[in-house]
């Protein structure tokens, strides 16, 4: 729908890394038996991606599939298609115990770009970002809120948090990338 807006409507800040809100991103929570064929099929249909293993996020032609817990996945898809994909996956999984819900609007997504993305994340999260490689998804805390992040390449990270704290998360990242606050541990 045309009047849909993301939490910060694409706000951005240029520091020693660039922070930008990614705008509307479709997201689906899928809970179920991750070893079932139905779930694998639902993931493939929605995103084109393979089933992610523990702590992984995979990429397909239509989106990504992230491992959130032993019985939960996060599907990252086109925002405008999320509702339809939820309906389709629900249908695919009708015969098994599963839950598929649209959480696109419950989240905010930030893209962080620059050589020091790992360092910037390390100012906020107790996770060891130095050893993170693209393809890994880490659910942890950034300052005082839960978040999940992953690298798409060595200079780009995407961070997902709840929509209600979108401004807090943006302000945190903005603070962390302030010129002059470079730690020098890239």
């Amino acid at each position: 729908m045309s009047n849909a807006v993301s939490a910060l409507q694409g706000a951005s800040f240029d520091g020693y890394c660039k922070v930008e809100e990614a705008g509307l991103v479709g997201m689906i929570t899928l809970r179920g038996d991750l070893s079932s064929e139905g779930v694998t099929k639902a993931v493939k249909t929605a995103t084109g991606a393979e089933m992610p293993g523990q702590g992984q996020i995979t990429e397909g032609a239509k989106g990504r599939a992230g491992w959130m817990s032993p019985d939960e996945l996060l599907l990252v898809v086109d925002h405008s298609k999320a509702a339809d994909l939820v309906a389709a996956a629900t249908k695919t999984l009708a015969k098994e115990h599963a839950l598929v819900v649209n959480v696109s609007d419950a989240r905010a997504v930030y893209r962080l770009t620059g050589d020091a993305v790992r360092e910037v994340l390390a100012k906020l999260s107790p996770a060891d970002t130095a050893v993170m490689v693209p393809g890994q998804l880490r659910r942890t805390r950034v300052a005082q809120i839960p978040a999940a992040f992953y690298l798409t390449d060595d200079q780009t990270a995407e961070l997902i948090c709840f929509r209600s704290v979108a401004q807090y998360a943006f302000d945190l990242l903005k603070d962390a990338v302030q010129p002059g606050s470079e730690v020098g541990i890239v």
């Binding site: 959130m68 817990s69 032993p70 939960e72 659910r139 942890t140 805390r141 839960p146």
Partner: peptide, 8 residues
């Protein structure tokens, strides 16, 4: 509980 991780 892995509260800000997998929630388990």
């Amino acid at each position: 509980r892995h509260v800000s991780g997998c929630g388990k």
